[in-house]
Design a binder for these strands. Structure first.
Lengths: 145, 145
DNA sequence: TTAATAAAGGACAATTTTATCCGATTTATA
DNA sequence: TATAAATCGGATAAAATTGTCCTTTATTAA
């Protein structure tokens, strides 16, 4: 409802890859799709996008798959994934769909939206893949169901 | 990005109708669509939904059109429009798309999402059509461009 | 009572998003 | 060097959302 389906899968996939990379495991699309309960081929497309945007790293051939460097888990924040997949509509777009909507010519909801969006923005900018992967590892959170 | 296009049109239409009803004018779909810059026939469908949900009032025949009673402008809050058009996914749905996601079995983003969504929810529940229509009337806000 | 006006509603079309399939490419290893 | 495992990329399909068209229904006013 807030992110596209593609973006939801993308985030879940990235978190799963991060978790496995912490264990030193490289993972295939098949495994990822199974573990995050998403359509395989579609997930593959999304991972290509994340790879092009250097959010995950892919390796072809046998023993290949997806991985994320330990340092990248810290530097990659959720807003980068959202931007890579959904673009920056979530930051720029008007809540009521006006093409031009800003402080000077605001839609009726503009001010109230700014607040909410600022919070969302901050949250996405401050949340790292590592943080999310840790929650999973400790068994506090889930990626399925 | 947060609401569907249908919902965006719906809110804009409702605000415009409220504004005109304050002046005692009943308005046609054609006029509404022109004033909020939306596709006429599609807007008509959305207004049917709003009518069924008693958010706007419609009158057939010559001199007919859409209107909103003065009292309803106060009692109708944005969340009712959103619910009528987009359903309650915005309230219930998991940010990462999990079917079951709650405090007991949360997705990695659950807690952070709860905060943002609570704010959004409150905002929608507390914003009345009258309030939005007033902003327009005073020339502070816009429904086009 | 008739003509004109406006919403209601059903069927259909276009576009976007989501999802699948399959051949090409890369690469590890036997 | 041959084979198999894995991603890449293009074409296509399915589903959902957005948008159009046309007929029916209700109602006003001449």
């Amino acid at each position: 409802m807030m992110f596209s389906k593609a973006c939801e899968y993308g985030i879940r996939a990235a978190v799963y890859i991060a978790l496995q990379s912490l264990e030193g495991r490289r993972v295939s699309v098949t495994e990822i799709a199974e573990e995050i309960d998403s359509p395989v081929a579609f997930t593959a497309k999304i991972l290509q996008q994340l790879n092009r945007n250097k959010i995950v790293h892919s390796v072809k051939g046998p023993t290949g798959g997806f991985e994320i460097e330990r340092e990248d888990m810290d530097s990659v924040k959720l807003n980068m994934i959202v931007k890579a997949i959904d673009g920056d509509q979530i930051y720029k777009g008007c809540g009521l769909g006006l093409k031009e909507c800003n402080a000077l010519q605001p839609c009726p909801l503009h001010d109230k939206f700014v607040d909410i969006r600022t919070n969302l923005k901050k949250m996405l900018q401050n949340t790292s893949l590592y943080e999310l992967a840790m929650g999973l590892e400790v068994g506090l959170t889930y990626l399925k169901r």
